[in-house]
Amino acid sequence: MKIKWFVYTTFAFMAFYGCKSDVLPKPKAMLRLDYPSASYQRLDESCVFSFDKNNISFIKENKDCSLVLDYPTMKGSIFITYKKVDGNIRELLVDAQKLTYEHVVKADGIAPKEYVNREENVYGMFYEVSGNAASQSQFYVTDSTNHFVTGSLYFYAKPNYDSILPAAIYLQKDIRRIMESLQWER
């Protein structure tokens, strides 16, 4: 009797626990995000400045030469703000840099890159922000006497650096194009 019970119990145990399939690791996969090749057109919104904008973006808002370039396919926007320089260039520069360095709490790093275009009288800084900060890029440009433009890149989602990195890189190229093509009204 004891042997039958042992055999039945052993058989039931092996049938119940021994019929599972082997666990296999998932194969490595690479995320594939294809963004269209950038094509640009001149944006002239009757402001004191103009620049090249990517054709996949559209102007979501334009008030007093401050505008929002919206990229719905990437769920992000570049916010551009214009301010007139009226003897307050120092304060404008401090505010622009302060806005960038407020992200240092969540950022892994902030890499500043100076921009100078003497021919068009455009001087500024581009900040690449890495990590889970709210904004992945910030910039400002000025002619130092009359005009000051700041810009920030934001996504519509909670920042997850690994997930938004491809879109951030694409939009950082657009920001550089904005800076490089910016011209002041003469």
Results as ranks from 00 to 15, higher is better:
Ile175Cys: 13
Asp52Val: 05
Trp184Asp: 05
Glu180Asp: 13
Val68Phe: 04
Phe126Thr: 04
Arg176Pro: 00
His103Leu: 13
Asp22Cys: 09
Ser152Met: 07
Thr81Leu: 07
Glu128Asn: 13
Leu93Glu: 07
Glu91Ser: 15
Glu128Asp: 14
Gly151His: 06
Val85Gln: 13
Thr142Trp: 02
Lys173Asn: 14
Asp162Lys: 10
Glu45Gly: 15
Ala15Phe: 14
Val104Gln: 15
Met179Arg: 05
Glu128Ile: 01
Thr10Met: 14
Ile80Gly: 06
Val116Asp: 11
Ser57Glu: 09
Thr73Pro: 03
Met14Lys: 03
Leu153Phe: 03
Tyr40Pro: 04
Tyr154Arg: 07
Asn160Ile: 09
Asn132Trp: 01
Ser39Thr: 15
Ala133Gly: 03
Ser181Ile: 07
Gln138Asp: 15
Ile3His: 09
Pro27Asp: 11
Gln172His: 12
Phe139Gly: 01
Ser57Cys: 13
Gly109Ile: 05
Ser66Phe: 13
Ala167Glu: 08
Ala157Tyr: 06
Thr81Tyr: 12
Asp95Ser: 13
Lys63Ala: 13
Val105Ile: 12
Lys173Ile: 07
Gln172Asp: 08
Asn132Phe: 00
Trp5Val: 11
Ile56Phe: 02
Ala133Thr: 01
Leu24Thr: 07
Pro72Thr: 06
Lys83Asp: 12
Asp64Ser: 15
Ala167Thr: 04
Lys158Cys: 00
